[in-house]
């Protein structure tokens, strides 16, 4: 996995197939919009690419690169939190 150059831009994970310039939602009164791609069991997992820290280096991780393997995908509230 190649080490990637690290700029100062605030990079984030992105969903494959989503519009490239995804703006944060301006109207919080429309949360149903965020459910358009909501994950469900029995359905294909939304593919993504995201910057990652991995074994001492910085890289990018893409879900579909793990095709053929089982993947445990874990979200958590934040680094340096207590649980």
């Amino acid at each position: 996995m190649a080490e990637q150059p690290q700029g100062c831009a605030r990079v984030s994970g992105s969903v494959e197939g989503a519009p490239p310039d995804t703006q944060p939602p301006q109207e919080l009164t429309k949360p149903q919009e965020s459910n358009r791609m909501a994950a469900r069991v029995g359905q294909k997992a939304p593919d993504f690419t995201a910057p990652a820290y991995y074994r001492g280096g910085f890289t990018s991780v893409k879900l579909s690169d793990f095709a053929g393997k089982w993947v445990l995908l874990c979200f958590y509230p934040g680094d340096f939190t207590f649980v």
């Binding site: 605030r10 990079v11 984030s12 994970g13 992105s14 969903v15 989503a18 995804t22 944060p24 939602p25 919080l28 949360p31 965020s34 459910n35 791609m37 909501a38 994950a39 997992a45 939304p46 993504f48 995201a50 910057p51 990652a52 820290y53 991995y54 991780v61 879900l63 793990f66 089982w70 993947v71 445990l72 995908l73 874990c74 979200f75 958590y76 509230p77 934040g78």
Partner: peptide, 30 residues
């Protein structure tokens, strides 16, 4: 350890909490 600063991936999985700006404890077996 992947980063989702804009919450895009969390939104796609239904675990991004807009009001707090964090990901809920979502666990998926793929």
């Amino acid at each position: 350890m992947a980063s989702d600063q804009a919450g895009n991936v969390g939104r796609a999985y239904g675990v991004y909490d807009e009001s707090q700006g964090i990901e809920l404890r979502g666990r998926f077996i793929i």
